[in-house]
């Protein structure tokens, strides 16, 4: 029986810039930062209040995929095709104001929904996430 999810991959256009975005803008903690080669690292980050959950910052470069697939995926990520998941927070309005002040791009301001109040933001690659204060 599956008990929980511990890792999820987020495909990013530039790992260095994603590292800066997820740590300095979203305030996530670096969980693993393992050098694999001169320009390749295994990096996982996660929300500070959720130990045991790691987001793998997977760079869309050759290695995992063919050149053709990398090109197609990069285009899709860049144009905001992928919604990766939902983050929750204690106070949606404060979190929204803080992230906006740090330069995070929102495509939806906080709005009441039947499950809580939700906003939507994009990471520096184009992946989008829901941010919600659930009821």
């Amino acid at each position: 029986m599956i008990s929980k999810m511990t890792h999820v991959s987020v495909y990013v256009l530039n790992q260095k810039s994603a590292y800066d975005f997820y740590t300095n803008k979203l305030g996530f903690k670096v969980i693993k930062d393992v050098p694999m080669s001169d320009d390749d690292r295994w990096i996982t980050v996660g929300p500070p209040d959720q130990p045991g959950f790691e987001i793998i910052l997977s760079p869309l470069t050759r290695g995992l995929f063919s050149e053709e697939t990398v090109k197609a995926l990069r285009e899709l990520v860049e144009k905001g095709t992928f919604g990766v998941g939902l983050f929750t927070c204690n106070d949606i309005f404060a979190t929204y104001e803080e992230l906006k002040a740090k330069g995070v791009e929102f495509t939806k301001a906080p709005k009441k929904e039947f499950y809580g109040t939700e906003a939507i933001f994009k990471d520096d690659s184009g992946n989008w996430f829901s941010l919600a204060q659930l009821v």
């Binding site: 309005f93 404060a94 929204y96 104001e97 929102f106 495509t107 939806k108 301001a109 709005k111």
Partner: peptide
């Protein structure tokens, strides 16, 4: 996007 939610200046 609409930014008029309650207490906006308080949060800022």
């Amino acid at each position: 996007i609409n930014e008029q939610y309650p207490k906006i200046y308080f949060y800022r």
